[in-house]
Structures are given as C-alpha cells and as structure tokens.
C-alpha cells in the first residue's frame, strides 16, 4: 500500500505525515507540487503548513499548483484523500470539500490538545473508529474557523458529512463545532486538527496512561489502508 504526501512551498508537516504513514504500515511516497505525477500511489495526504505563506487566502495559491489537476481527478475517481489543516484549506479552495476556513474568532494562532468526537465512521479515513468515539488530536492553526452557507451546513448535517466535531471547547468559532468534513462519496476528508501528530508514543498529546502517549491519529491512516484493502 503506497500513500503519497505532497510537499508544497511552505508545507511544514509533510515529513511528519510521511512518518505517520509508515507508522500505520504503509509505504510513504514524497510528491512534489510542481509535478503532474502521482507516482501511482493508492491514497494521498495534503499536509499542514503555511503554503505560500498563507498569502491571498490560506491554501488558495497551492490549490492551483500543477499537481492539483491530478489530485482532483484522483479524488473524483474515488482515491482516498486526506487534507490536514492547510491541506484541508486547499481541498476547500479546490472545491473538493464544501465551505471555507477563516481567521480564528479570537484572532490568534492556537495550539492545544483538542478533544474531538468522531461523527462519521463510514469514510475512507475514519472507518476504524467507533461512532461517537472521543479522541484527542493536536490542533495548531491561525485560520481554522469553519464557515459555510446555511444551506450547505444544513445539507452537511442532513447527510452526516460532518466527520469530526470539537468537544468541550470550540477553539476557533467554527459553525456547529465542525472540525472536519467529508465529501459525498466519503473518500475525501479534511480537518483542522493534526492526526499525524498523534501517531507515535512519546510524541503525541498527553493521556491518562502517560505523558505524550496519545496515538488516536494512527486510526486515520490504518482506516485508509483498510479501505484500500477492502476495495
């Protein structure tokens, strides 16, 4: 199983996402934004960071990168695609996911260990969770407030396409505490928190068991592998 991670100018968590892919048992493939080549990967991760310095709008310039043509085609054909933070912003800019991300309501960058509830376990990236499962995933962003039109929100909620909801604390003012969403087909998922930073014991969020031992993020990647194996 080969999962590609695309590096854009200004990507920051690309190496971390590749490490998470390996931790889940897949082969990681480094992809470059300027290429028109997905190297035959089975799934894709658009990692976090500040592509193009967040100039214009977060993810807006990167969503026009050469490789995005191939990403959109692959997504439309059903390839599992995960957008994390800046990657989520790119997927929204590329219209693979509805809505948009704006400046946090409190105006500042925030980094915290964020509690989430898994709302949809039918997607390619969440099938390993149980419905309603509570997980802890690190969050770190300046522009993470999820916004969409009232009709879009109604449709997303009606179709069960809210994948994750913030639990306990809404860290950025997102509508309906939405932390992540999926497309209709369930192969494309985007969220603001960073699952790749909760995949290795010793380097994740704190848990009751031990400091920095949280690995809830690993299930995102093992879910994708399971989805590919089932397909």
């Amino acid at each position: 199983m080969r999962i590609g991670v695309i590096t854009f100018p200004g990507s920051l968590d690309d190496r971390d996402a590749r490490r998470a892919v390996r931790a889940a048992g897949a082969e990681d493939v480094a992809l470059w934004h300027g290429d028109h080549d997905l190297s035959g990967v089975d799934a894709l991760v658009l990692p976090g960071g500040f592509s193009y310095g967040d100039y214009l709008r977060c993810g807006a310039i990167a969503s026009l990168s050469p490789i995005m043509n191939e990403v959109v085609d692959a997504a439309n054909k059903g390839m599992p695609v995960l957008g994390i933070c800046n990657g989520f912003q790119m997927l929204a800019e590329a219209h693979l996911l509805p809505g948009g991300l704006i400046r946090n309501d409190h105006g500042a960058f925030i980094r915290r260990d964020q509690h989430l509830r898994v709302e949809n376990t039918a997607t390619a990236w969440t099938n390993g969770f149980t419905a309603g499962q509570q997980i802890v995933i690190p969050l770190k962003n300046g522009e993470g407030e999820y916004v969409a039109s009232a009709e879009t929100i109604e449709r997303l909620e009606g179709d069960g396409r809210v994948a994750f909801r913030y639990l306990g604390v809404n860290p950025n003012g997102s509508i309906n505490d939405i932390a992540g969403v999926t497309n209709e087909r369930g192969n494309v998922v985007g969220l603001m928190p960073h699952p790749e930073h909760a995949t290795e014991p010793g380097f994740g969020p704190d848990t009751r068991a031990a400091m920095r031992s949280g690995v809830d993020g690993l299930t995102f990647f093992t879910s994708a592998i399971a989805a590919l194996q089932a397909a």
């Binding site: 920051l12 968590d13 190496r15 971390d16 490490r19 500042a108 960058f109 925030i110 980094r111 915290r112 690190p138 770190k140 960073h194 790749e196 930073h197 290795e200 010793g202 380097f203 920095r212």
Partner: peptide
C-alpha cells in the same frame, strides 16, 4: 505558549512548561 506550535517536526520529547525542552 498556546500561540506556539511545539508539535511540528514530530520530534519534541519535552517542551514548556517542563524545565527544559528536548528534541529527538
């Protein structure tokens, strides 16, 4: 410190408020 990202890189073994920071 909530405005600082200590996760990026995936090698942070200790950070504030611990007495020292540590990187793998």
């Amino acid at each position: 410190t909530n405005q600082y990202d200590y996760y990026v890189g995936g090698n942070t073994a200790l950070s504030f408020p611990d007495d020292g920071g540590m990187i793998r």
